[in-house]
Design a protein around this nucleic acid. Structure first.
Length: 475
DNA sequence: TCCCACTTAGC
DNA sequence: CTAAGTGGG
């Protein structure tokens, strides 16, 4: 008689280099591949139509991949504990395998399921290169500053990339006739969303292709290219940055694959800039681990500032101003371009994220948590740990010792990182005819475009206002 | 992963 | 007048 184990896919939507999946396959039992659409994914504060649509696309791809194995993805809608319990009974499964996630919600969910499942829930570290707890200070406490964390991180060996399970690993469709839900991935509409973003391909094959293309091409110029806001071509949504965050978010690519590809490319990198570029890119993977580690050890950051004194900042509550920021109608071209790109693509390059985050928190003096939520509602790569870390970094309330006076000038940021205005013209068509000289400050033109708003705040005055608001609460 | 005011050197 | 460098928020 055939016996089964369940692999519960969560944010590891791939077959290659999947730690828990390989462990499940190594039991010698047939693996039943399951994804559960938990209400928590599509309801609640951080729910996102664009990210949901991207994820559903990835689930369809995963289902297609599993057909090659003579199987399908079993998709269930509902509460994970109850569903797993029922599946274990129906299939006679002897264990459930999954890769651990480190958000407070995931910890709670898995802990509850573990105690009530009746069979073991085996959790594996896979989502981070080095999981929370693997990088600690000499005294056993967690790092709270990035640079020493990174230094320690670099000295710890990382695992190799593993292959996909053998062809016979998965349950054959006809062996579990009582179970239904094979390959029935719902549409975003069925879950109450009508997403409008222009989504990229979402599959393991596409993720690997993008990684190869990046490592063999733009990676060599990443150290500077990552800051270039505009895509190479006007009609091209492919940016200078790697554009791998959406794939890492849902595990169509593993961080090990990303890291080992960079390491493998390093010996052939034939210039200082090329080597620095690969190091910078690896550094981004370290940031990813760092913020997972911060969220694991300090889950309160989702509610409060990492430095509690900054929760006394008197954030301004001006919904109409927040609305203008969200719509990309602030009057600062680079800010507006970025905010409109977010709504069109569900994605922005990191430089753009920093610019708009600085503008919301420092120029408008609106609470970083408002911005954090808006990003989570739109970003296809939106991840609670990284997004929270990024926002607290920008607001100056976070882990790094950088002072609160990190205030970006939206004009000089535009001039530095979109010197020819291509990014602004791509996303703010009202400014298409503005000459380069004025593209980042159209209000200085003799006759500014009538259909584009004047700047909603004076940057110099806003800067002063923010410096005093922060000074007032500084310990 | 910054900005700004200020200084100095050079024309 | 600009460029380059510096100190400090």
């Amino acid at each position: 008689m055939q016996t089964f184990v369940i692999h519960w896919f969560r944010r590891d939507l791939r077959l290659t280099d999947n730690t828990a999946l390989l462990a499940a396959a190594a039991t010698g039992h047939s693996v039943l591949p399951v994804f559960i659409l938990d209400e928590a994914i599509y309801k609640g504060r951080f729910a996102s139509g664009s990210r949901l649509a991207f994820m559903l696309k990835a689930l369809r791809s995963l289902d297609e991949q599993l057909k090659v194995y003579g199987s399908r993805l079993l998709v269930k809608l509902g509460e994970p504990g109850g569903i797993l319990h029922q599946l274990v009974a129906e299939a006679g499964a002897s264990a459930v395998y999954a890769n651990a996630d480190y958000t407070p919600y995931a910890h709670r969910r898995d802990h509850t399921i573990k105690s009530g499942l009746g069979v073991p829930l085996h959790l594996f570290d896979d989502v981070a290169l080095l999981p929370p707890g693997a990088v600690l200070k000499g005294d056993g406490k967690p790092f709270v500053v990035f640079t020493p964390f990174k230094k320690a991180w670099l000295n710890i060996p990382k695992g190799p990339v593993q292959s996909a399970p053998a062809l016979g690993a998965f349950v054959k469709l006809d062996s579990l006739p009582m179970v239904d839900g094979w390959g029935t991935v719902p549409s975003p509409q069925e879950l109450g969303f009508a997403p409008t973003v222009d989504l990229p391909e979402a599959s393991e094959v596409e993720a690997t292709r993008r990684l190869d293309e990046f490592i063999n091409g733009r990676a060599a110029a990443y150290a500077t290219g990552r800051n270039v806001l505009a895509a190479e071509r006007q009609d091209d949504t492919r940016p200078e940055s790697s554009f791998l965050s959406p794939y890492l978010r849902f595990g169509m690519l593993s961080p090990r694959q990303a890291y080992q590809a960079a390491r493998a490319a390093y010996p052939a990198a034939n210039s200082t800039h090329a080597r620095e570029s690969l190091e910078t890119w690896v550094s981004e993977l370290v940031w990813r681990d760092f913020y997972m580690h911060i969220l694991h050890f300090f889950p309160q950051v989702l509610k409060s500032s990492f430095r509690p004194e900054y929760d006394r900042v008197e954030w301004r509550q001006f919904p109409a101003e927040f609305q203008r920021w969200k719509e990309g109608m602030t009057g600062y071209p680079v800010v507006d371009a970025a905010m409109r790109q977010l709504r069109a693509m569900g994605w922005m390059p990191n430089r753009a994220r920093m610019i708009v985050a600085s503008f919301l928190t420092k120029d408008l003096l609106i609470d970083w948590r408002e911005g954090e939520r808006h990003f989570m509602q739109w970003l296809i790569d939106g991840d609670p740990a990284a997004n929270n870390g990024g926002w607290q970094w920008s607001a100056g309330t976070g882990t790094d010792a950088q002072p609160y006076f990190r205030i970006f000038n939206p004009v000089s940021q535009g001039e530095n990182f979109d010197p020819d205005g291509r990014y602004v013209r791509r996303w703010v068509p009202e400014l298409a005819q503005v000459p380069d000289k004025f593209i980042h400050q159209p209000w200085a033109m003799p006759a500014p475009p009538a259909n584009y708003p004047p700047p909603m705040v004076n940057h110099g005055e806003a800067r002063t206002r923010t410096l005093s608001a922060f000074k007032a609460v500084k310990g």
